[in-house]
Amino acid sequence: MTNAAHVAQHYIAAWNETDPDRRRALLAEHWTDDAHYLDPMMRANGHADIGAMIGAVQQRFPNFRFTLHGTPDGHNDRVRFSWSLAPAGAEPVVIGTDFVQLAADERIRSVTGFLDQVPAGT
């Protein structure tokens, strides 16, 4: 069975990586070339689109960090985990839950995200 915590940690690392070159390397290592992402506000396909989407979120929330919220869970080729986004030392501004489907090599093939808490007016 997949190590759900390992998958979630690599996922969060990509979202927190502010250097575009290092973020591209993380995506190449831990996401399939044809990976796709979908949540109520965004969608992206492939490393370039996903990297640009992450960069846009970082611009919208400068100096914020993603952290795992609770314990990741997984079975077969699926992983589920919750996360939060907050500035250092502050309460989360955004909280979400993501469902990941993995490829046979255990890289991320798809992400379906749900937003549990978002700022007013977003």
Rank of each mutant, 00 (worst) to 15 (best):
M1D: 11
M1R: 14
M1N: 13
N3V: 06
N3T: 08
N3I: 09
A5K: 14
A5C: 07
A5T: 14
V7I: 15
V7L: 03
A8S: 03
Y11C: 04
Y11S: 07
A13C: 03
A13L: 08
A14T: 04
W15F: 13
N16S: 08
E17C: 15
D19A: 10
D19Q: 14
P20K: 11
D21F: 09
D21R: 14
R22A: 15
R23K: 14
R24N: 14
A25T: 13
A25H: 09
A25G: 07
L26K: 09
L26Y: 05
E29T: 13
H30D: 02
H30C: 02
T32H: 01
D33N: 08
D34K: 09
D34F: 03
Y37L: 05
L38M: 03
M41D: 03
A44E: 07
N45S: 15
G46P: 11
H47Q: 09
A48Q: 15
A48M: 13
A48C: 12
D49M: 09
D49W: 07
D49T: 05
D49K: 04
I50D: 10
I50L: 14
I54F: 03
I54N: 06
G55Y: 13
G55W: 11
V57Y: 12
V57A: 13
V57N: 12
Q58K: 13
Q59V: 14
Q59W: 09
Q59K: 15
R60F: 05
F61Q: 12
F61W: 15
P62Q: 10
N63G: 04
N63C: 00
T67L: 06
L68W: 07
L68C: 06
H69E: 11
G70P: 05
T71Q: 14
T71Y: 07
P72I: 02
H75D: 10
H75W: 10
H75P: 01
N76T: 09
N76E: 13
R80Y: 08
F81E: 03
L85E: 10
L85T: 08
L85K: 06
A86R: 13
P87W: 02
G89I: 02
A90P: 01
E91M: 13
E91V: 10
E91P: 06
P92F: 09
V93P: 05
V93T: 14
V94S: 06
V94T: 10
V94P: 04
I95Y: 04
I95S: 03
G96K: 00
G96C: 03
T97A: 05
D98R: 01
D98N: 07
F99V: 08
V100P: 00
Q101H: 07
A103P: 01
A104S: 03
E106P: 03
R107V: 02
R107I: 04
R107W: 01
R109E: 07
T112P: 00
T112V: 08
G113V: 00
F114T: 01
L115I: 10
Q117R: 13
V118G: 03
P119M: 07
A120R: 11
